[in-house]
Amino acid sequence: MDIHARIYVAGHRGLVGSAIVRRLLAEGADNLLLRTHQELDLTHQAQVEEFFTTEKPEYVFLAAARVGGIHANSTYPAEFIRDNLAIQTNVIHSAWKHGAKKLLFLGSSCIYPRDCPQPIKEEYLLTGPLESTNEWYAIAKIAGLKMCQAYRQQYGFDAVCAMPTNLYGPGDNFHPENSHVMPALIRRIHEAKLVDSSEVVIWGSGQPLREFLHVDDLADALMFLMNNYSNGSIINVGSGQELSISNLAHLVSDVIGYQGELTFDRSKPDGTPRKLLDIGKLGRLGWRAQLGLSAGIDDTYRWFKASQTHSRA
Score class of each variant (00 low, 15 high):
S179W: 04
A5V: 05
D216V: 05
E131V: 00
D265L: 06
E242W: 02
S253W: 00
N31F: 01
R187C: 02
N228H: 15
Y301P: 10
E55N: 08
E39M: 02
T36P: 07
P208C: 01
G280Q: 14
F105S: 01
G28R: 13
N90L: 11
P269T: 09
E122I: 04
A19Y: 04
Y76R: 13
S132L: 11
L262E: 05
S311C: 01
A95C: 07
L167D: 10
L185P: 12
T89G: 09
L209S: 02
P208G: 06
P129Q: 03
K101G: 11
L145V: 14
W136T: 14
M226C: 06
L262V: 09
G292L: 07
F174P: 12
R274D: 04
Q154R: 12
F157C: 08
E177C: 01
R6Y: 13
A19E: 02
Q153I: 00
L126H: 08
L285D: 05
C116A: 15
F212D: 11
N90I: 13
G68W: 07
I235M: 03
K268E: 15
D172Q: 13
L282E: 14
G14V: 11
D172H: 05
K193G: 05
H190W: 13
V200E: 09
Q38E: 15
T43R: 15
M182H: 05
S132C: 01
F157I: 11
A192E: 11
L285H: 00
L291N: 03
G206K: 06
I202T: 08
A29M: 10
G144E: 13
G28V: 10
L209G: 03
Q290M: 01
S230M: 03
H93V: 14
D299C: 03
S18T: 03
L243C: 08
S109Y: 14
N90S: 09
V252K: 01
E131G: 02
P119T: 04
L40S: 07
S311L: 10
V21K: 03
S108A: 11
K275T: 05
A72C: 04
E177L: 14
P273A: 03
L104P: 11
A72W: 10
G292V: 04
S294H: 06
M226Q: 10
I186F: 01
R6T: 09
T165K: 04
A140M: 08
K281C: 04
V160M: 01
H37C: 00
H4W: 00
E55C: 01
A221L: 10
T53H: 13
L285N: 03
L106N: 15
L32A: 04
L85A: 08
G107V: 06
F174C: 05
A192N: 07
A86K: 14
S198H: 13
V201Y: 00
F51Y: 13
M1H: 12
W203Y: 07
D2T: 04
A78T: 11
F61V: 09
R312P: 00
F157R: 12
